[in-house]
Amino acid sequence: MEKKSSSLANLFLLFIFFILYAPIFYLIFYSFNSGGTMSHFEGFTFDWYRELLHDTRLLIIVLNTVVIALLSALIATITGVLGAIGIRSYKRRQTRNTLLSLNNILIVSPDVIMGASFLILFTMAGVRLGFYSVLLSHVAFSIPIVVLMVLPKLMEMSSSLEDAARDLGASHWNVLTKVTLPYIAPGIFAGFFMALTYSLDDFAVTFFVTGNGFSTLSVEIYSLARRGVSLNINALSTLMFVITVIFVVVYYYLASRSGTKGANLRR
């Protein structure tokens, strides 16, 4: 009985994953189609990828996307880590929870609203839409994610570790760099990679705040798709998917490594 139901459950799980991944693999499959349409497969080709590599405009956009992702993730990580340390420093539980809630609301609030409000803010403040507006908004929506990844690690750290470092002669700066940061490093890396992936595949916010000829991949793919179906998009999407998968794998590797370390500690 038990065996039967569990195999049924597995089947269901496979089915769900199939539904979730089928469109992506369908898209990936036709990126190798020499026919030029997604209706029937004629023959295997790398033409679309080759074309992609020769499209300098698109390459610049890829570069833009990567630069925005790296920069925004970096700035958001630094700010988010400081923010998490700040939140922890509040002794009162209520203050801490309020701050954390304010942080979490930003994560769950719809991207469209975030994008629209950034647009209003930038136009009112007179910021030209382009690289900096996109960077700023990416930093803004990445910070809460970093805080969320770093804070549990910080909370888990016993305060006696910092006392011990002070006791051994460390200045506040030494405590931060030699004890606190190394301890929460797995959380920081996880936060950085999360911010990176969020930035890489963000569409809604970027769509609102971009302009002046500046574009990122997701926005570009959207406009290409609107103009008409080209298998260029498939090739590009495939590459993006692969890159995202790599990031996720790296993230889980780091997370699991820090997890086993924690388990050892408890032993």
Binding site: S158, L161, D163, A164, D167
Partner: peptide, 15 residues
């Protein structure tokens, strides 16, 4: 950090 005093903590507080 300016006192010539060192502590052994209950939870050891090893790094």
């Amino acid at each position: 950090n300016k006192r010539p005093i060192n502590t052994v903590f209950q939870d050891y507080a090893l790094f």
